[in-house]
Design a binder for these strands. Sequence first.
RNA 1: GGGCGCGUAGCUCAGUGGGAGAGCGCUCGCCUCACACGCGAGAGGUCGCAGGUUCAAAACCUGCCGCGCCCACCA
Length: 888
Amino acid sequence: MSEQQPEPALAGAEMATRYDPQQVEPRWAAEWVDRGYFTADPSSGKPPFCIVIPPPNVTGRLHVGHALGRTIEDALVRRARMQGFEALWLPGMDHAGIATQVVVERKLREEGIERRDIGREAFVERVWAWKEQFGGEIVDQIKRMGASCDWTRERFTMDEGLSRAVRVAFVRLHEAGLIYRGERLVNWCPTDRTGLSDSEVEHDEVEGELVTFRYPLSDGTGSIEVATTRVETMLGDTGIAVHPGDERYAALVGRTVTHPFDGREIPVVADHHVDEEFGTGAVKVTPAHDPNDFDIAQRTGLPLMNIFDAGASLNDAVPVEFRGLDRYEARKAVRDRLDQLGLLVSEERPYLHAVGHCYRCHSEIEPWIAGLQWFVKVSGLTGPARQVVEDGRLRFAPERWQRPYVTWLDDLRDWNISRQLWWGHRIPAWYCPDGHVTVAITDPDACAECGSAEISQDEDVLDTWFSSQLWPFSTLGWPDDTEDLRFFYPNSVLVTGYEILYLWVARMVMSGLFLMDDVPFRWAVIHGLVRDQQGRKMSKSLGNVIDPMEMIDRYGADALRFSLARAATGGQQDIPLSEEAIEGGRNFANKLWNAARLVLRAYPGGEPVLPPAARHTLAERWLLSRHQRCIAEVDVAFDEFRFADAAQTLYRFVWSEFCDWGLEFEKGRLDAGGAEGEDATQLLAWVLERTLRLLHPIMPFITEEIWQRIGLPEPEALAIASWPGGDTSHTDPDAEAALTQVQAIVTAVRQFRSKHGISPKERFDALAGVPADTLEAVTGQADSALRLAGVTLDVTTLDTPTRDGWTTVTLDQGFVQLPPGLFDTGAERARLAKQRDGVASDLERSAKKLANAGFTSKAAPEVVQQERDKHERLGVKLDAIDAQLAQL
RNA sequence: GGGCGCGUAGCUCAGUGGGAGAGCGCUCGCCUCACACGCGAGAGGUCGCAGGUUCAAAACCUGCCGCGCCCACCA
């Protein structure tokens, strides 16, 4: 830290009442990186732990979904680092083909420039320039979150190394016969003017129409009715199909109908795909614009008739009156024309059906023949990808994601990887005039087959996801055999949202297994989508978008991180988040800050030393025991990727246990000063310090800042301190039980005061009775807890005579007596009566249970004994209340 | 058409076979010398519905109802 050194130790007294993340976070974010804590060293001798970041789009901005993923990743990596792993979190960005191209195109258009006007080379240059200038904002945003990435290893999917990896991967797959070129119908986006893979098409219900119309038989003997949701495609019909076994149409197969607009004679064919039950049992066949029809045409030899241009407007293949119309205008025009000719049979509108949409721009997809395209043949890749989850080499958390993953693999069709874009990895295939294809890693000078020097490279680029699927190993140096690759592959964990389970996760597994012969990662941690409090998707139009940068400005990165971690429950599919929740995270940070202020007020600095056990008070034994349980619970929660549980456990420990009881008990000792005060201070600092370590993966900034103020001689930062755990020596069930007694006493007195409206200023005496075996432990402790609240307490055993005229509050095990004159008798009678009702009904239920022979004979003995104890306790309590009521 | 998830306090969610919980919100009382971004005390729930298993069900099984999501070439 060049300008602002972290505060030295002993700064407790200088700590402000309010924690201010803005003064802390930027300093540490820079300092950790500058000191090289996050730079991984594969030769350290430590075991590896590696996560690669899901690379965000270069043009992207951090949204709250990213914030969730990065929080989870950072928590895992920081904990692993503290646990002694050589932890690498490898960052980088994705060129994001379509998305980026569209963004830059839009910017250029604002300058009055069309990409086709300036040409491919100039356009790509503009994208690079744009990327250099405006891209990467998201990197700074990730840094602000406190992400412990190794920025020295930052990668980009189109940097030199990764571009080479893409070519090698392409060539290797091609050599293995797993990449081929073919002409097929592709999912065409008429807006982005490129083909898409099946995974990039989203199916949404739309309110369309179902139009039924007639094709007259060419011989004038009748007609055939067909139905369609896209009546405009009838312009491209080249056949009518019926089921081979359908007797209604058997006589028509082989005959023709006449196209009403252009007079073409169209054959009636038989094909098994047709469902006799549906509609009229006859189907119009548009091979060039429907995948099923394409298949039918392949089987029956019907010709293809392409009626659309790349923008999905009608081309010159259709009658003049329709040319140039876009598909929606055409739909109406064709329908009207059919109506005029008296061929329209019926219309159903609205007709709900699913229509494919482009995942980037949401235009309706047009199945279209876009020339020769490259495909990945998945049949050779899915088997191993399924196998590794079945034999546990790759595991999902939560486990339920395994099933959809396997199901998807089972149904997978070949992957179209050609994109008619300019921004991306150009397909490493060259063609000569004779039609030979040369596929090569480095640009060839001549055709590999005929030696022709007249070769030209494929105009298309590869699907963005083709390079993303290599990310877990290409970033580590593949195809070279690097030290990083050997050490950090397979990655330990991959963290991502379920929306790219197929698009990305499954493909990394397939390519990793094929190219690296091993899974890309051992765990796939799948999280939900962050939604608003009503469960709605965040969108600008709804105005419910939570901008993580704004939240960091307002509440701090720790607050954001904590609230995200706490919300990531995994039980439900998605994650609701509200600004109030983040405010809760901020409040928690402030609570921790103030607890530290109190503990460190008189702390001398240095490593906290736990006083010998013999000097621990009951409350201290309790605190250490609870703290130890907290460590164990947090540890297991992290191991099982239950981030919400880890956060919740820490919240409860810090707030409800450490602060609410621990610090309240210890205030007396702290104030006492001297040896007693030193013991208390050391013990609290010891617990605090370990708690900071536990909390650090989720809230790195505030924990580091406080930790520095404790002033340990080493290590120099919490970020590289060790993870607590393992030790169980402080577990102390006796202390926990005894303290439960104390809490009951303290609560009873507080309730009494509150119920009777006794002013906090009013001081009074009280007497508590507890079982003999906890008397010694409880004595003093209960008194010290209450003294601050203006109550002087005597503690005695249960069998000591009670004080005449005092009112008794009956506890589960013991009682509290309060002096007369403090309260209204009527109110007290009401309080007791209410309590009696509760106890009486519990007692009745317990008695019934014990009277049930089935229960006493079949239930586990310890459960029955527990019930007997409870019954007895309730009986004693009821008697005590009755006695008290009688006195009033 | 196939699959998945969820219905528990006003809201968002924990809780997987033995006495209904948390955070926020709400009510009452407190500026108690760490914290009002706080402290203390409360109110509030036929655990979606109906059957079943069990001595015992919010939890396990079956069916139904409701909400959300994913996959899918019924025109």
